[in-house]
Amino acid sequence: MGQDRGVPEKTEEGRPPEMVTLAEIARRVDLSKQRVQQLAHKDPDFPIPKEQWQKVGRYYFLPWEPVKAYFEARDPQHGVHFAKREERRQAEGDDSK
């Protein structure tokens, strides 16, 4: 409680934050769900501590904006950084034409 890196209550526009599951995060950043879970549990720089995740039914939800910023700033050691995903997909699409 009282942590700066916690779940934001509202966006700058005054709306509730967009909440996403780990599976949705994985889809958006083009990683496996297992890799996202691993980073969320083990990386001390992950922006939302597990005790602040919001559980609804069987799923945990996290605010998208701080998670998005984390993945944009992250320097992956292996694979393609998700910021390059669209560039790669467009190149793949161009090759098939």
Results as ranks from 00 to 15, higher is better:
Gly2Gln: 07
Gln3Asn: 06
Asp4Pro: 09
Asp4Lys: 06
Asp4Tyr: 09
Asp4Ala: 11
Arg5Ala: 11
Arg5Lys: 08
Gly6Thr: 00
Gly6Tyr: 01
Val7Thr: 07
Val7Met: 04
Val7Ile: 07
Val7Trp: 05
Glu9Trp: 05
Lys10Met: 08
Thr11Phe: 08
Thr11Asp: 07
Glu12His: 05
Glu13Val: 00
Glu13His: 05
Glu13Pro: 03
Gly14His: 08
Gly14Gln: 06
Pro17Val: 07
Glu18Asp: 09
Glu18Ser: 10
Met19Leu: 15
Met19Pro: 06
Met19Tyr: 05
Met19Cys: 08
Val20Asn: 02
Val20Pro: 03
Val20Glu: 03
Thr21Ala: 07
Ala23Gly: 11
Ala23Cys: 08
Glu24Asn: 03
Glu24Ser: 03
Ile25Arg: 02
Ala26His: 06
Arg27Trp: 03
Arg27Lys: 08
Val29Asp: 00
Val29Tyr: 02
Ser32Glu: 15
Ser32Cys: 11
Gln34Ala: 12
Arg35Tyr: 14
Val36Leu: 00
Val36Ile: 03
Gln37Ser: 15
Gln37Gly: 12
Gln37Glu: 15
Gln38Glu: 14
Gln38Ser: 10
Gln38Ala: 13
Leu39Glu: 03
Ala40Trp: 04
Ala40Tyr: 02
Lys42Asn: 14
Lys42Gly: 09
Lys42Tyr: 09
Asp43Glu: 05
Asp43Arg: 02
Asp43Val: 03
Pro44Ser: 04
Asp45Tyr: 10
Asp45Cys: 10
Phe46Asn: 00
Phe46Arg: 01
Pro47His: 02
Ile48Val: 14
Lys50Gln: 12
Gln52Glu: 14
Trp53Gly: 02
Trp53Tyr: 08
Trp53Ser: 05
Trp53Ile: 05
Gln54Asp: 13
Val56Ser: 12
Val56Asn: 12
Val56Ala: 12
Arg58Trp: 06
Tyr60Ser: 01
Phe61Ile: 01
Leu62Val: 15
Leu62Tyr: 04
Pro63Ala: 10
Pro63Thr: 09
Trp64Gly: 00
Trp64Thr: 00
Trp64Leu: 01
Glu65His: 11
Glu65Cys: 05
Pro66Phe: 09
Lys68Asn: 06
Glu72Phe: 10
Ala73Ser: 14
Arg74Gly: 01
Asp75Met: 08
Asp75His: 03
Pro76Val: 13
Pro76Ala: 08
Gln77Met: 08
Gln77Pro: 01
Gln77Cys: 06
Val80Tyr: 02
Val80Met: 13
His81Ala: 09
Lys84Ile: 08
Lys84Gln: 11
Arg85Met: 05
Glu86Phe: 15
Glu86Pro: 10
Glu87Gln: 14
Arg88Pro: 01
Arg88Met: 13
Arg89Met: 13
Arg89Pro: 04
Gln90Trp: 13
Gln90Lys: 15
Ala91Trp: 00
Glu92Gln: 10
Gly93Ser: 14
Asp95Ser: 12
Asp95Leu: 14
Asp95Phe: 10
Lys97Tyr: 12
